[in-house]
Write a protein that binds this DNA or RNA. Sequence first.
DNA 1: CTAATTTTGTAAGGTGGCTAACAAAATGAC
DNA 2: GTCATTTTGTTAGCCACCTTACAAAATTAG
Lengths: 149, 149
Amino acid sequence: MTDPQHESAGAWAKQYHLASRLVMESVLRPHDLGPTQWYVLYHLATVGETPQRDLAALLQVERATLTGVVAALVRKGLLVQEPSCTDQRQKVLRLTPAGAALWRKLPDPIALILDTAFDGIAASDVETTVHVLRTATGKLHDLLSKGTP
Amino acid sequence: MTDPQHESAGAWAKQYHLASRLVMESVLRPHDLGPTQWYVLYHLATVGETPQRDLAALLQVERATLTGVVAALVRKGLLVQEPSCTDQRQKVLRLTPAGAALWRKLPDPIALILDTAFDGIAASDVETTVHVLRTATGKLHDLLSKGTP
DNA sequence: CTAATTTTGTAAGGTGGCTAACAAAATGAC
DNA sequence: GTCATTTTGTTAGCCACCTTACAAAATTAG
């Protein structure tokens, strides 16, 4: 899906993203977790029990997507999903002991990626990159909201 | 899937990538094409008939993935897949007249994305961005090839 | 020439993303 | 208090990508 004719910052953002996802997947594969599954565990382990609704917003995935990811983790016995006592529509997610134990053994793929990827690159250049990509992303979102009212 | 704790250049590459894919999908949706399908048409329209094997390498997708994409386009009558006369394992892909006609009517989503996203950003900043992302991507690939021999 | 190996495409099954339609619970209007 | 609306999660169906395993054709070894 790379496009040799249009080689540009756009293509490189994609290349970087794919490479970092490959690293993440290769780190997590031995533990039988996908990247999104890891993010869910990460959040529950560091922040504690969380309503599923909030998690969808935090991870920026659709409710329906999270349903599937959570179902996979519940199937593996790593977390439980129980109805909130104050609002019976909501479900609260919490690590099981097995989930917490797994988390303790898990490497941190994000730290590995950042340490590897930006090692030796000037901080100011990284800042410029973040700024350019953030600006570009904003413009694309503007286009989307204008183009599709 | 964004990760507020680790918000960094890593997350922004992803954000940009997702935004550009959304733009591409919204441009192509009226024509009932997905991004990868568009890239296949793009290549066949600008370069001419191509062995499926080569196309997989050019688009950087797995052979198995391309099988599905090509099948969808064949189903729509936009291209044909015929065995090579010199090597009967290979299949050569070529636009049909219908595919060529559709291509002529199609907008160029890549041009739209690049024009929108990087408009008004200093060329030197874009160059820095490309350099940082390319370097970071290279380091991640190094890690992958060393880590998994 | 035959037998082993490599190359090419396909099939099956999983992940993770989306939308749309739905049911149940909570909330607001009146 | 009842009825309409909003919120929450699930289901079902689609897309694009992956890996593994396979079959058929081509190439290489002997």
